[in-house]
Simulated assay, not measured.
Amino acid sequence: MGPVKAAAGHVPPGAANKRLCYTPRMIAKINGDRALALARDVLDIEADAVRALRDQLDDGFVEAIDFILSCRGRVVVSGIGKSGHVARKMAATLASTGSPAFFVHPAEASHGDLGMVTADDVFIAMSNSGESEELVSILPLIKRLGAKLIAITGKPASTLAKLADVHLNAGVSKEACPMNLAPTASTTAALALGDALAVAVLDARGFGADDFARSHPGGALGRRLLTYVRDVMRTDDEIPKVPASATLREALMQLTAKRMGMTAIVDSNNHVEGIFTDGDLRRVLERAGDFRELPIADVMTKGPRMIGPDQLAVEAVELMERHRINQMLVVDEKGTLIGALNMHDLFSKKVI
C-alpha cells in the first residue's frame, strides 16, 4: 500500500509547529544614527526623572526612615510587574545594608504568604499607578495587623498613597518609551528612591565597612574588607631575618631560602633595624671586589616600610603600590618583628 495522502485542507499533527519553526524571521535594518539618538534621549529622560526626585522629597522621607529604624521585625517589600522587580532589588539592598528585609509577591500574599507579615514589621508597597489590584486588596489586612505601611507610587492621589502611613512620591513627567507606555523612567525613579532610602537608613544606623563585609563574606568585596594583615602574613620560621651583625652572605642565604625577595635585619630584641631586598642586592653587585663578607648593616635599607597586624590587608596593598615596593615587615606596637608579607601572599589570598 502506498503512502496515505492527507485530505485537502487537513494539516497533519505537528505540521503547523514545523511550519512555524521554519518561517523566516523578519530582520529590521538598524539605523545607527537613530538608535544612538534614541538611546541618548532615554538616558536624558531617565536622568531628569531621577534628578526631579530631589524636589519631591519631604518630611515623609524622614518619617519612613524612622519607621525602618524603629522596626522590631522585618521590612517587607512588595510590588507586582516591573514594580515587583524594583521591590525585589530594594529588599536585597536593605538586607545587605543592615535592615533585615525580604520580598513578598502580592498575589501570593493573598493566598497565604501574608502570614509572613507581623505587627512588628514595616510593609513597603511599590506601584507606579498606586492602584495595582493585587496590592490594594491586601492593604486593609496589613493595616489591621498593625504593621506600618510605606507606599512608593507615582500618584499621590492614588488608593495606595491614601492608605499608607507614609507616601513617597516617585512620580515622573513621562516615560522614556517613545510611546510613553513601557515602564522605564518610572522604574528607574523608583529604584533610585529605594536606594536613597536604604542609604539614608544605613547612615542613620551607623552601618560601616566591617558590617557590610559581614553580609558579603563570600565575594571579593568580603575578602577585601575582612582580610587583615595577620591573616596573610608569614610568621615564625617563615620570616626571613638575620641579626644586625650578620654578613651579606648570611643575608643572601636567608633571602634565597625564604623566597620573599628580602630579609629583615633585627637587633637582639628582635626589633627591626633595616631590610635587605633584591633591589639592594642589585646595587651591591654594581660594586667591585668581594662583597660576601660585607657587614649587612652597611648595605641594608634603614627605616623600612612596616605595618601592624591588625590593619586591613588592602591597606598593605595601598602602601606597597604607593611606595612601589613588593614586601613589607609586620611589627607589633613595640616594634618587634612578628611577620612578613609580599605581593604574592596578597595575590594568593585574593586580596588583590
Rank of each mutant, 00 (worst) to 15 (best):
Arg205Leu: 13
Leu168Ile: 07
Leu285Val: 10
Val266Ala: 07
Pro156Tyr: 06
Met320Asn: 01
Asp310Thr: 04
Glu273Asn: 14
Tyr228Val: 01
Ala176Pro: 02
Gly146Phe: 08
Pro12Glu: 12
Val77Tyr: 01
Pro24Gln: 12
Asp267Phe: 10
Val330Gly: 02
Val104Ala: 03
Gly335Asp: 05
His85Pro: 02
Asp66Ala: 14
Cys71Ser: 06
Ala196Arg: 08
Ala182Arg: 12
Val284Asn: 00
Ala340Tyr: 01
Ala119Ile: 13
Phe123Leu: 08
Ala251His: 13
Val104Asp: 00
Lys258Met: 02
Ala91Gln: 01
Ala101Asp: 08
Arg249Ile: 05
Arg51Pro: 00
Val351Asp: 04
Asn128Asp: 03
Leu149Phe: 07
Tyr22Cys: 08
Lys29Val: 09
Val104Asn: 07
Met260Thr: 10
Gly303Lys: 08
Leu248Phe: 12
Thr23Asn: 12
Gly303Met: 11
Ile30Ser: 13
Leu337Ile: 05
Ile325Cys: 10
Gly218Asp: 05
Lys258Asp: 02
Ser137Thr: 14
Thr93Arg: 08
Asp332Val: 07
Ile325Ala: 04
Ala170Phe: 00
Gly2Pro: 11
Val4Gly: 01
Asp236Trp: 13
Leu221Lys: 13
Gly219Leu: 10
Ala204Phe: 05
Met26Val: 14
Gly2Ala: 12
Asp195Asn: 05
Leu337Tyr: 05
Val75Pro: 00
Ala151Gly: 06
Gly208Val: 07
Asp236Ala: 14
Gly308Met: 11
Met233Arg: 00
Val172Arg: 04
Ala37Gln: 15
Ile239Gly: 00
Asn128Ala: 02
Leu168Gly: 03
Pro178Ile: 11
Phe103Asn: 03
Leu181Ala: 10
Ala49Ser: 15
Ile150Leu: 01
Ser158Thr: 01
Glu238Phe: 10
Ala288Leu: 11
Ile150Ala: 07
Thr256Arg: 11
Val136Gly: 06
Ala316Thr: 02
Asp33Lys: 15
Ala39Ser: 12
Arg322Asp: 11
Ile30Lys: 13
Tyr228Ala: 03
Arg54Tyr: 08
Met116Asn: 07
His105Ser: 09
Ala200Val: 03
Arg283Tyr: 06
Ala198Gln: 06
Ser268Tyr: 12
Ala6Glu: 12
Met1Gly: 14
Glu286Met: 09
Ala204Asp: 07
Pro295Ser: 10
Gln311Val: 09
Asp237Ile: 14
Ala209Cys: 05
Ile152Phe: 03
Asp267Asn: 15
Asp121Ile: 10
Met90His: 08
Val166Glu: 02
His344Arg: 15
Ala49Val: 10
Val199Glu: 07
Val201Thr: 14
His85Val: 10
Val229Trp: 00
Ala220Phe: 13
Gly274Arg: 11
Leu329Val: 04
Met126Lys: 03
Lys258Thr: 01
Val172Asn: 01
Thr256Lys: 05
Asn31Thr: 03
Val117His: 05
Glu315Ile: 05
Ser215Tyr: 15
Pro24Lys: 13
Leu329Tyr: 00
Pro309Val: 00
Phe102Ser: 08
Ala39Leu: 12
Ile45Arg: 09
Ala91Thr: 01
His344Tyr: 04
Leu38Ser: 13
Lys349Met: 11
Leu221Glu: 02
His344Gly: 00
Ala147His: 02
Ala213Val: 04
Ile307Glu: 03
Ile307Thr: 09
Gly73Asp: 04
Ser83Glu: 06
Leu114Met: 13
Ile80Phe: 01
Arg282Met: 04
Thr277Gln: 05
Leu43Met: 14
Ser78Tyr: 12
Phe61Glu: 04
Gly261Ala: 08
